[in-house]
Computed example of a mutant assay.
Amino acid sequence: MKVLLALILMLAPLPAMAHKVIASVYPAGASIEGEVGFSNGDMAANQTVTVSDPAGRSLGETVTDAAGAFSFAPSEPVAHVFHADLGAGHVAETVMSEEDVAAVLGRAVPAAPPAAVSAAAPAKERAPADGLSAETREEVAAMLRAELRPLRQEIAAYREKNDFQTILGGLGWIAGLFGLGFYLAARRRMAG
């Protein structure tokens, strides 16, 4: 019995200190905001984020603040790839699509083939919010982004923490312990 208890204690899962890199970008008025951090909740402060197009052509760079957040003002309606090397093999990379960047710039996406253009419905112009000035709308949008940032971080950390691999690993441990129990029970019956 003591051997079984010692074996179980040796094989007991210990809390893992590994973490994954999380990165996200989203439109924020006339710029692109994003954040870089780890799934354990630590954010990547003062890290350089390089921005390129999908072909690797440099579009610029920015630096994260103490909360791991950054802002980048795009100048071209092309897909933007955000890349940050956090050291120790941790690399964050995320992409904002060409359509989203074009929307940030207030430009139309480059023309599609003529057949697709004729089938597309005409775009509606956005109606101004009920009596709010452009400055007030931008202030409200900035407040919402600031309030939603912690929620985005929590959701990203939760997704990374509870992924499918973790669930399968837990099921593997359970099956392994049952197998060990059946093995020991069969061995006792054969000995007794």
Rank of each mutant, 00 (worst) to 15 (best):
R187F: 03
P128R: 15
V104L: 09
Q165Y: 14
W173K: 04
G87N: 08
A116M: 15
D42P: 05
M143Q: 12
A30S: 09
G179H: 05
T48I: 14
A103N: 03
T48C: 10
N162S: 06
L105M: 06
H80D: 00
V49L: 07
A119V: 03
I22K: 05
P110S: 08
A185Y: 13
G106M: 02
R137C: 05
P54Q: 09
K2P: 01
G87T: 09
P77Q: 12
A23P: 07
A12E: 03
S75F: 04
M190C: 01
M43Y: 12
A79I: 03
T62Y: 06
G41P: 11
A123W: 02
M1W: 06
R159L: 10
V95L: 14
S24K: 11
G87S: 06
G176F: 15
E154Q: 14
L86A: 04
Y158T: 11
V63W: 04
H90R: 02
V49F: 11
G34H: 02
Y158I: 03
A12S: 12
E99Y: 04
Y26F: 14
M1S: 13
Y26K: 11
V101T: 12
S58A: 15
V117R: 15
L11D: 02
H83S: 12
A191G: 00
Y158H: 07
Y183M: 12
F72H: 14
P122D: 09
A191M: 07
A23Q: 10
A6N: 14
M1V: 06
I8P: 00
L59H: 11
E135Q: 13
I8E: 00
A88S: 13
S97D: 13
Y158L: 10
A55N: 13
R159G: 13
A141S: 11
A84E: 13
P77K: 09
V78H: 08
A69R: 10
A156Y: 05
G37Y: 06
K2G: 09
A45Y: 02
S24W: 07
A156V: 00
G169Q: 14
F178G: 01
L177T: 03
M17G: 14
A23E: 10
G169T: 13
P128K: 08
E99S: 08
K2L: 05
L180I: 15
A69N: 06
A103W: 00
A73K: 15
V109W: 06
A45T: 10
R189P: 00
A134F: 01
A186M: 09
D130G: 09
A115F: 10
A116R: 15
A185I: 11
A121W: 10
G87H: 06
L86Q: 01
A123R: 14
K20V: 00
S31R: 13
N40V: 05
Y26I: 06
V140T: 02
G29W: 04
M190P: 00
E135S: 12
D130N: 03
M17H: 06
A44R: 08
A6L: 12
